[in-house]
Amino acid sequence: MSETRQAALMGYHELLGMQVVEWSEGIAVVELVADPRHLNRSGIVHGGVLTSMLDSALSLAGLHCPLPGRVRRGMTLSLTTTFVGPAGAGVLRATGRVRGGGRKVYMACGEVTDAEGLLLAMGEGAFRRRSGSESPEGVAE
């Protein structure tokens, strides 16, 4: 994984085991291998894990920076998640796509699927690029 992708998800995301597997202008894909630590008392992946995956994929979709040593940062303004089906252990994939917006605020949507491509959750949200992150050149890391 490139340093840029690795730096995109730190702290909490590392704790969950999330990794960026694809990232370019307007799209981001994160994956996680769900194991017993991600399950709720019913034996399925906790909804908070799926929501965290959506939050990461959707926000990163609007924060790609092609220049080495530079980053774009942002924050979530709103996020709505709809759960469609239960997720078990195994590879989960969240894909986020920018749908519109401007220099500072953008909207994104996406979904979480399992290894077979079954839809588990959908989400949409509004995000704000932090100061200096409005342009694709971003800011120094």
Results as ranks from 00 to 15, higher is better:
H13C: 07
E124L: 11
L77G: 12
V21Y: 01
L50I: 09
V20M: 01
E111P: 10
I27P: 03
T51F: 13
S2R: 02
Q6T: 12
E116D: 13
V105A: 07
G26D: 00
R128W: 00
T81S: 13
G90H: 10
L119N: 03
G101Q: 07
A57C: 09
L39H: 07
E25T: 12
G100Y: 05
R5A: 12
M10I: 15
V45R: 06
R72G: 10
G11V: 04
A28E: 00
A89E: 14
F83Y: 13
R70Q: 06
G125A: 02
A121C: 07
Y106A: 05
D35S: 14
S52K: 02
L58R: 00
D114V: 08
V21W: 01
R72C: 09
R41P: 06
M53V: 09
S2Q: 02
R37L: 11
E134N: 04
V91E: 15
S135Y: 06
G11T: 11
G85D: 13
C65M: 04
M107F: 14
V33P: 08
G85W: 13
G117N: 03
E111A: 14
H38E: 03
L79N: 11
A61R: 00
V71I: 14
T81P: 09
E22L: 06
T76A: 10
G90E: 07
A7P: 06
L120R: 07
G96P: 01
V112F: 02
E14Y: 04
L79V: 11
E141M: 14
T95V: 12
E25H: 08
G101I: 03
Q6P: 06
T4M: 14
L92R: 06
P66H: 11
L60Q: 06
S131D: 13
